[in-house]
Design a protein around this nucleic acid. Structure first.
Lengths: 333, 333
DNA sequence: TTGTACGCGTTATCAT
DNA sequence: ATGATAACGCGTACAA
């Protein structure tokens, strides 16, 4: 591993001069500059970032903590974010919690010690511990997916209440009378609680009945299983809202297998507008969110926090819109 | 930002002692150790990794370069890999090329300057330039998805030839007579060339006709569009092999829309065994690969390279197996 | 224009 | 058991 000292002796100059060339600073004899540059190139020299960072006291890296990689929405979020980071020549240190909030706390500490310039945390379910860790972070933090603005933590999140409300409205408009809500744990405030609240409120005036399930997990398998259980209990819904596309897709599958046809005898809505929605039969109606855009926005909010432009604004809400597809109808054929 | 020097004065000891406590080294008075540890804890001290790395000459980070995030297989690959890396307390610096091979080359250099201990590169399509860059990397490189072992680059890749061969065999067994191959650019040796070769060879004895398309891209939309074009030309296949699930799913959709029913009038096979296979109607037969396992393996191969255990073995092939589902049959009903 | 000398925070060596 | 000191590789005042 070469150092600038090596280059310096090879070129017969001092380290300072090499450093100046490396960083394109003025004050170097053009010929000397060319000569030194040539030596740098041919010797495959690359500056040691650890030393650079130690001196500069920043790392040009941001940490990203996600709960799960194997999800399309997380993937496109990262995609959008990485594009934005790349434009600022910032690298991304990625960590995967596997849905564990304790691990998330650990990672925040590790990232801090790594000296990241900031971090973006996708949070799915939080507790007091995590909030404290996030609040106590040395480097700026932006959370995504939950609203933690009341703790003075910049948050980019989705209009989950409105999402649930829209879904409820849509199902009512289709004339559904016996609804099924497939949600996840209330530990997840956004998906678990807000979407349910919105859904409940949409229904509150209408006086239709609804069966609530709140212990799905984020896999299609789960939506399928829970739906089967509900059917086995003798509750036959004619309208289903799954808080994610995969849960909704699982429910659709279960209904189909039970001989109740989605888009005819039961209306179904998911959330996420995943690519698979279009491929299903019938295509799955869904609330669309531009996760890639959210990723960009999160990166931008983080930049503001890093560069210290004091932002009064902690809450950055992201609107979704309903994408109608054939799964969301009832026909008496 | 606190340093061990700060802790040292606060505890009334020297930096050395603090360092010893920090690294759980022997040779410290138990009482002193406890006292110092207490101060460390309460002052939210975290060691500066840049300084640590500078001294230790390694970063506990590996770089990961992927062509695209928004793909399930890449996501689960990263998932498996991150689990393995995590177990070794190694962090992951992730970069996204957006399918550009030049960018991949740039990233290799950036990662080297970041001082990563090694890197894992998912390559989809390569040229001479990239091979040279990979070969000239300061830190060990493992490539995934293509076989570059002939260039003395450790490679973890799939049995793509056999994959194509299996798909061809299956379609022949179903009695298909007019086949359609939906592939991608031969730039991608694995998916583009090997899968096609295997497919061709499986067909070679049988004397059935086959229409080859080799310019799909990795989206469902693409498979759908190409299939429509083929149909418009008057070629009506009764067997389709799409080199990825998404391409195959798109093809299935196009066929369905044309009134030709998959699983009855046309047999269809994809590759990847994506979660969506099970959700489609009919469920999509697919060649299954455990990407998560490949991720683990890639990480392990990299560890060996990093720790210098000289491996003679550059090629690590990964076997897939055919997962039959209802899309892969023809019935005369 | 160029070189010298010091500091960034940590660990390792060698004294004490 | 503890402390002083010298590296690690780079940038940068400051001196020449």
């Amino acid at each position: 591993m070469k150092t600038i000292a090596d280059i310096a002796v090879a070129a017969g100059v001092s380290k300072s001069t090499v450093s100046r060339v490396l960083n394109h600073r003025p004050g170097v004899n053009p010929q000397a500059r060319a000569r030194i540059q040539a030596i740098i190139d041919e010797s495959h020299f690359t500056a040691n970032m650890a030393a650079k960072n130690l001196k500069a006291r920043h790392s040009d890296m941001v940490g990203v903590i996600v709960p799960l990689m194997t999800s399309k929405s997380v993937a496109s979020f990262i995609h959008g974010m990485s594009a934005e980071l790349e434009s600022q020549h910032i690298q991304m240190l990625l960590m995967n919690t596997g849905m564990s909030t304790e691990k998330a706390s650990d990672y925040v500490k590790i990232l801090n010690s790594k000296g990241v310039d900031g971090m973006i945390v996708l949070v799915a379910g939080y507790d007091q511990q995590l909030i404290e860790t996030l609040g106590g972070s040395q480097s700026p933090v932006v959370v995504v997916g939950q609203d933690l603005s009341m703790h003075q933590i910049p948050s980019v999140f989705y209009d989950d209440y409105r999402c649930g409300y829209m879904a409820g409205q849509q199902l009512l408009e289709q004339g559904c009378k016996r609804l099924l809500f497939l949600g996840i744990s209330p530990m997840d405030v956004a998906l678990g609680r807000q979407r349910r609240r919105g859904f409940e409120d949409a229904l509150s005036m209408a006086g239709v009945q609804c069966h609530y399930v709140s212990d799905c997990v984020l896999f299609a398998e789960s939506g399928m299983e829970k739906t089967r259980q509900v059917l086995a209990q003798g509750y036959i819904p004619d309208g289903i809202f799954g808080v994610t596309d995969r849960i909704a897709a699982g429910a659709a599958k279960a209904m189909t297998q039970a001989g109740i046809i989605p888009g005819q005898q039961v209306a179904i809505i998911g959330v996420g507008d995943d690519e698979l929605c279009e491929l299903l039969t019938p295509p799955l109606a869904s609330v669309h969110y531009d996760h890639s855009e959210v990723g960009r926005q999160a990166a931008q909010v983080l930049f503001e926090a890093i560069t210290g432009r004091t932002t009064e604004r902690y809450a950055h809400i992201h609107q979704g819109h309903f994408h109608w597809r054939a799964s969301c109808q009832l026909s008496e054929s």
